[in-house]
């Protein structure tokens, strides 16, 4: 093997008379690209949120409950949250869920951030238009704008006053609280249960095995692909200097997507072969090792009682 001569000479020092041009280097901080950052964040989030399972290992109330019992109870409570039609019982439910998070050793700040930053934002956007009388007629709570006459817009006729209605606001608050309760419940389950147990519990309860298997494999490989993707970016960063144009970056990103895609296809073929080789015939089967104990029955009983109280309370408010 003939090694080219330049490879055997130490790198040239950078000086004004050097043959290497450095004018493409601008004296500024290299900005980490948006995709770089997103990928890094994504990997961190996936690692910390889905894979760390640190909270699931803590000693708390919900950690002691059998995952299958937990899935059933959370399903019941989600139904309850959807059936309640008044603000006070919904508020009580939400506060009680916060309390549950607290006694299950979930850091409250993280829990609140996860639930109450997301819900008002997304649900809020959805329900926002419905608080105005233009969308949903009702008793005006706050008049915003007076028009001289009713507005005709194609087949639609709008009232002459744009106002926020009390029905709209209450409806929106109820929907947000309801969504908050449901998300809190899901968060409680995933915080206090290792992901694998969640999947096994799903299978134990009512979800078809094939669906659980697909989820399980996605869980298994999602991290591998995030890792491969972030390795591609790290490898590139270690070789690139100075500023790259947006066009170059675009072509790099599309190339990376393509190479990941073909990697994924090849890997999926290999995995399928490995499964077939070990006797897979399209009927996945696993051994679950869940024992329902007295505590779990007590827990379910407790949840049923709480549900009855909440729904009963809701009727009283009516």
């Amino acid at each position: 093997m003939a090694v080219p001569e330049w490879l055997l000479v130490p790198q040239e020092q950078i000086s004004p008379n050097a043959s290497i041009k450095t004018s493409f280097l601008k004296n500024r901080l290299r900005k980490v690209s948006f995709i770089d950052k997103t990928l890094e964040e994504l990997t961190t989030v996936v690692r910390d949120e889905i894979f760390s399972e640190a909270i699931a290992g803590r000693d708390g109330l919900l950690q002691k409950i059998n995952p299958a019992a937990k899935v059933v109870s959370i399903f019941i409570l989600i139904c309850v949250a959807c059936l309640i039609r008044h603000i006070i019982p919904l508020l009580i439910l939400n506060i009680w869920l916060l309390l549950l998070a607290y006694i299950s050793s979930i850091p409250l700040s993280a829990f609140i951030k996860r639930v109450w930053l997301v819900v008002p934002l997304f649900t809020g956007i959805i329900v926002f238009p419905s608080i105005f009388n233009f969308i949903q007629p009702g008793t005006p709570l706050l008049s915003l704008f007076h028009f001289s006459q009713r507005i005709h817009f194609g087949p639609w006729v709008f009232p002459s006053v744009l106002a926020i209605t009390s029905q709209g606001v209450w409806g929106a608050v109820i929907l947000i609280l309801r969504a908050g309760a449901c998300i809190s419940l899901a968060a409680l389950l995933t915080y206090t249960t290792p992901w694998q147990s969640v999947l096994k519990a799903l299978q134990k309860v009512f979800v078809p095995q094939i669906f659980v298997s697909v989820l399980e494999m996605s869980y298994r490989y999602i991290y591998l692909f995030l890792q491969s993707a972030s390795e591609i970016f790290t490898a590139r960063r270690s070789r690139s200097l100075g500023h790259t144009s947006t066009k170059e970056q675009r072509s790099f990103v599309s190339g990376a997507i393509g190479s990941l895609w073909s990697k994924a296809i090849n890997l999926s073929k290999e995995i399928h072969a490995a499964m077939i080789s070990r006797g897979y015939t399209g009927r996945p089967d696993t051994i679950t090792n869940f024992r329902i104990r007295t505590l779990d029955w007590l827990w379910i009983l407790f949840i049923v009682t709480v549900s009855a109280l909440l729904i009963g309370g809701d009727r009283i408010f009516a």
């Binding site: 694998q196 399980e216 298994r220 890997l267 290999e270 072969a273 080789s277 070990r278 006797g279």
Partner: peptide, 22 residues
Amino acid sequence: AFAFRRKIGFVFQNSEAQLFNS
């Protein structure tokens, strides 16, 4: 397939493909 597969075990070069369980 059942009779055939149970007689043969294949350890793949790429362990990543072989380890598909959680």
